[in-house]
């Protein structure tokens, strides 16, 4: 359940940013979560329910923006949609793949007032 640590980091980072603007409430937060980030969105939602208590995020709408996987083959240099962490290159069949998108774990933006 590493999602609880992640949820606590989200609250801490968002509050730090909001405080720079002397905001008293965060009304919305957008999270970019790659399909290969190692984060289970359902588990993160559950963890955030607890982590936001008594924080500036307590009443915030939490928007999850999943990012799909994209790979690049290190052998033939083609790029393609990556469905799993161990899919071969659809062009040459190699498993020597670089993940280009899908590992993101980011706060995209916050709405503050």
């Amino acid at each position: 359940m590493h999602e609880l640590s992640i949820a606590q980091s989200i609250v801490q980072l968002a509050e730090q940013e909001a405080q720079k603007y002397h905001a008293w409430q965060i009304t919305e937060i957008e999270l970019e979560i790659g399909v290969f980030s190692g984060i289970e969105i359902q588990a993160l939602m559950f963890a955030l329910e607890f982590a936001v208590k008594d924080s500036l995020l307590e009443k915030a709408d939490i928007i999850y923006l999943p990012i799909e996987g994209k790979g690049e083959c290190r052998e033939c240099e083609s790029d393609f949609l990556l469905k799993s962490l161990f899919s071969p290159c659809p062009n040459c069949g190699s498993y020597n793949i670089q993940i280009v998108n899908g590992k993101e774990l980011r706060i995209k933006s916050i709405c503050i007032k």
């Binding site: 603007y21 995209k108 916050i110 503050i112 007032k113």
Partner: peptide, 14 residues
């Protein structure tokens, strides 16, 4: 403090 809502873009790695 702010009373108008504003959006701040972070793109910050958690």
């Amino acid at each position: 403090h702010l009373h108008e809502e504003r959006t701040v873009t972070l793109k910050q790695d958690i």
